[in-house]
């Protein structure tokens, strides 16, 4: 058994122990169709080997994870990125102590509760913490990172799935202002893919 599988198993068990809330399992809900470049969970059902399926599912998740709507606020440095090109944010803003910006130049100085004209908005607009940076990382690195409670906000895999499927700030990725391209698919579909990936052992690509 590879080290990665062991880790995945451990995590899966941990997740099982924490599973006290009612969570809809993928099997109980309607399988969503693919949309705008993001495939349906059903498209992966034909892969019989579980690890292979899991890796394929994570590859699909990668389309969202590495999309500028997501990476731009998971920057490697102190400064978020902007636009489809991932240019450094103008004006200069930094994550600050709590990822909500510097003193007197908080995210909320410009970003309101919802999108306004070209300005993205959310009641809690902020950067992902530095340990959750995705910018410039391989999918393998990102995968290991999002499964690691030390680097994922101390979330179990089930909590991670819940976060991906329902978090309001994550949802922004699919409803940016008009001039920006939404992430592929939709959040519910993304959530199903995350669950399917976890259910298939949450395998990570090796490189």
């Amino acid at each position: 058994m590879s080290r990665a599988t062991l880790l995945a198993l451990t995590l899966a068990l941990t997740a099982g122990c924490r599973e006290s809330r009612t969570v809809t399992s993928p099997s109980q809900e309607q399988v969503l169709p693919g949309e705008r470049g993001l495939r349906s969970v059903a498209d992966f059902a034909g892969i019989s080997e579980e690890r292979e399926r899991s890796l394929a599912l994570f590859g699909e998740l990668g389309q969202v994870i590495t999309h500028p709507r997501c990476v731009n606020c998971h920057p490697a440095g102190e400064r978020p990125l902007q636009g489809e090109e991932g240019f450094p944010h103008q004006p200069l803003v930094v994550r600050g102590e709590d990822n909500h910006g510097a003193a007197a130049m908080q995210c909320a100085t410009c970003h309101g509760e919802s999108n306004f004209r070209s300005i993205p908005g959310n009641p809690d607009w902020h950067l992902a913490p530095a340990e959750m940076a995705w910018e410039g990382k391989t999918l393998a690195e990102i995968c290991a990172q999002i499964k690691d409670p030390a680097r994922n906000g101390d979330m179990s895999l089930e909590q991670l799935a819940e976060h991906m499927a329902h978090d309001d700030l994550v949802a922004y990725g699919w409803k940016p202002p008009a001039q920006l391209e939404p992430a592929p698919g939709n959040q519910a579909l993304f959530g199903q893919l995350v669950r399917a990936w976890i259910a298939s052992g949450a395998h990570c690509p090796e490189s």
């Binding site: 200069l92 803003v93 600050g96 003193a103 007197a104 130049m105």
Partner: peptide, 13 residues
């Protein structure tokens, strides 16, 4: 007592 960097960060907008 802001540092130069604090000023850069707060006034960049």
């Amino acid at each position: 007592t802001p540092s130069d960097q604090d000023i850069d960060h707060a006034m960049s907008g």
